[in-house]
Design a protein around this nucleic acid. Structure first.
Lengths: 200, 200, 200, 200
DNA sequence: GATGAATGAGAATTCATTCAT
DNA sequence: TATGAATGAATTCTCATTCAT
């Protein structure tokens, strides 16, 4: 009688364990053994759920992408500049978990980028985000909430790059919480000025 | 007398070879053997110039930092908002070499960040840049070129994070040249709006 | 379930293989690869049982110490000078295995002696042996079997040094069996003269 | 115009440097580089005087043997038991330099013993010593100074082994000076009893 | 399904020796 | 002669992956 195991649940457990291990030792210095130990399973069992270390980390990153997407409201609900800016501010605040993930992500992504496959996924994800932002901006333009001269696609890319850069600095440089809040406020202010119609 | 070698030149040669190897295979998948081969020297020779792979990559990154610093004009010469914005635009355009370095940097930095030593260096470099930006902004405020309400330190951090993020996206996502130019123009425009006094 | 292995047995197997390899090539000229080959296991497997070459040789030496100790009778049973001398004669006759070990021991011990840790263990073992001998001598003095003027501790150290030296010469110089027997007889005789009361 | 260098002197200098280096780091952990540095010459220069590390250490050991031989008085001068015993006592007291050499010797000898050539030399040296001792004992027997029943050859081997063993213990076990003196006295006493005619 | 012992390719690093200058 | 840069074989050790139980 085989044990009934929820495969998906087990994968999640393993990914969380892997994440915990990566956070404390870094990606490349964490062995599959260490991950197994952290997950309280045997090394061999790991391979029943992930065929390789690479797959494991790819799924982990994909999950991270998905969770980021889930944080995004539906475009429809962001129908005013104010709401959009509020969303931006949220995007700038990583949860503690995300924050821990960032250095790992960089290390892992760097090493995964040799794979054409992975970099494609990454680009797709980025494009999805860009579209999401662009759609919102287009809607806001239709509603005359923001400058009509803005190129939604270009501006979206800027927002994405900027957000990632700011978060990255926060995570790598351990910017203190108070300063970071000011930075966020200022960024929102900056974007507001950039988008809003002058003569309001 | 033994062969006379310009030690510094040799180090540069090796670093370039390493960079080339890293670019084609990624940092952690590049062995010291491969670097030696790329540099057309023996494995042992490598160790005459760098005591470890870690040292090699650290020096490589430090060199990158230095070359970034050298790109910065002296603060004194940036005495108008226009000049400052021109500098910003330059900062957003990585040379081809820098562009290749970026993914490597992330992979390596991720793995080096476990070392207290390295992360300190990184923070120091970041702080230097911040100061550099902040000094310019203060000068511009004195000269009444930009809004007095701006907090130079906070705004500098934003510029740094933003710049890094935009460049990172360019490098990882292979944004096409034309779009990227538009992004740069738009960013400069955005920053201009954020800094300049409205009622000019 | 994975293969069930008697860990202790495997360690013994490996140690024997290592010993065989050391005997034919010397300690420092024997690589871990060679030991693995001799033990008919993979290099990696070796490291499942011993974390380093140093640990392997330390355990090997410790085992040797233990087997030497086990050769010693209980002090209580050596209650006459004759019995004591018989024990001494036994101590002078290394088994074939021990004989092979001796040159290895010297080479390894020489190189291990840089480690404070190891030299401490070695001294402790030596001290134990000294105490063992000294206790016997004290008992024999109590029983008026030997000269009361003998200093048990000093005499024990002499016996230990002498024994080691004689065995060492046997092993390094390949003294022929017949001569060696005569040497042992003579030594026992010498010690007897040194210990016994003249006017018996 | 070539520098005039006394080849023999240079070899001595190098050997002393090597010895110093070996003492502080052990034989196998001392590289030729380190020896060169200690001798204040270049690595390449080392090879002008010794063709290999092995040759260097062999010469070093041979020198040690020679200096030991030189410590021996001429047999003719040891014409009484008392004089012989005095010589024995001297043989038991290594100079500070010799003492440092002993652990090195063991490590090096162990590793050199794989070479048939070297072990032969070692045996020859040992045989020479044995003969030297045996000759003295024979002379003493002729002069009726010691027991005629003693086998000079066998007894010599015992003395040699014993001496080496005692010195070895002193060097490895760091026996304190006072105890060691007592041991020496006791050994001399022991040998005296073993050799002298009872009814004196 | 689960286990963890076994594997062996491959990594970083060392160092005796050579050789161009 | 003297030098020390260059070499590359050899070494120790790691770890992703496999597989017998």
């Amino acid at each position: 009688m085989p044990k009934i195991v929820d495969k998906a649940e087990m994968r999640t457990t393993i990914i969380n364990a892997a994440l915990a291990a990566f956070v404390s030792k870094g990606f490349q210095h964490t062995s599959m053994s260490a991950i197994a130990k952290e997950a309280h399973i045997a090394k061999g069992t790991l391979y029943l759920y992930f065929h390789s270390k690479e797959e494991l980390v790819e799924v982990m990153i994909e999950n991270h992408f998905l969770s980021l997407k889930e944080k995004l409201s539906t475009p429809a609900s962001l129908d005013t500049l104010e709401k959009f800016l509020a969303q931006l501010e949220i995007a700038l605040l990583p949860t503690q978990e995300e924050e821990a993930l960032v250095p790992i992500m960089f290390e892992a992504i760097g090493s995964l980028f040799v794979s054409e496959d992975f970099s494609l996924k990454y680009k797709n994800f980025s494009n999805e985000l860009e579209e999401w932002y662009a759609n919102i901006l287009k809607e806001l333009q239709k509603k005359d909430e923001i400058l009509p001269t803005i190129n939604p696609s270009i501006f979206s890319r800027i927002l994405l790059g900027m957000t990632d850069g700011i978060i990255m600095h926060k995570c790598f440089l351990e910017i203190e919480s108070e300063s970071y809040k000011q930075m966020c406020t200022e960024i929102v202010h900056l974007v507001k000025k950039g988008l809003e119609k002058r003569d309001d």
